[in-house]
Every structure is written in structure tokens, then in C-alpha cells.
């Protein structure tokens, strides 16, 4: 299955409607997009997905971390090493 948002081909079915199987959920392992097969075509079809929201490896690599990851304090670095 192709991820409608980032076109990764590894997207896979992860769940289906517990009661009656009336829908299925899919998930992309790269951009974590989750979708239901019964949603609008603009959400489920890679060709119709709004280009402003499309993702790719380059865009993901350029994203800011929120919040930024602080450096480990010196005293904790030592403890961390000692403790394995």
C-alpha cells in the first residue's frame, strides 16, 4: 500500500472495524500517517492528496525538532556511562 502523504510503499494495514469490518486502517512507517479506507479520496489517494501537505524524505530531514533536545548535563553524562 502506498502512503497517500509521502508515497512510501511500505504502508500497511494495521486495524479493521471491530464490529463489522466496515473500514480498514492503514499506517505509514515513515511519516506515521494513519488513514481509514472510507475517508475522502483527497485523504486516501496519493495522486489527489493536497500537494501543500505532501511529505518526502527531504522535507522530513529539514523539519525542526519541537522542543529542541538539550545537551545532557556533564554530571549526568558521567553517571550515565558509569551506570552503563
Amino acid at each position: 500500500m502506498i502512503c497517500p502523504r509521502c508515497d512510501d510503499s511500505r504502508a500497511d494495514k494495521i486495524f479493521e472495524a471491530p464490529e463489522d469490518g466496515s473500514w480498514e486502517l492503514y499506517r505509514c512507517p515513515r511519516c506515521y500517517f494513519v488513514w481509514r479506507n472510507t475517508e475522502e479520496e483527497e485523504v486516501t489517494n496519493p495522486d489527489l492528496y493536497d500537494p501543500r501537505f505532501k511529505l518526502n524524505e527531504e522535507k522530513i530531514a529539514a523539519m525542526d525538532p519541537k522542543p529542541p533536545i538539550p545537551p545532557i548535563r556533564k554530571e549526568n553524562r558521567t553517571r550515565h556511562r558509569d551506570g552503563g
Binding site: 515513515r30 511529505l55 522530513i60 523539519m63 525542526d64 525538532p65 519541537k66 533536545i69 545532557i72
Partner: peptide
């Protein structure tokens, strides 16, 4: 000490936030 792709989500501003590493 790790972040991964999150969003977008429609916020109180009435518009979608961008995707970020969260």
C-alpha cells in the same frame, strides 16, 4: 532525546500547523 514526525493538526488559529519533529 528523540523526536519524530507529528502533525499537521488544525489549531485554534483556524489553520493547520506544519508537520514538525515532536
Amino acid at each position: 532525546r528523540q523526536r519524530s514526525v507529528e502533525g499537521p493538526f488544525t489549531e485554534y488559529t483556524g489553520s493547520y500547523s506544519t508537520s514538525m519533529l515532536q
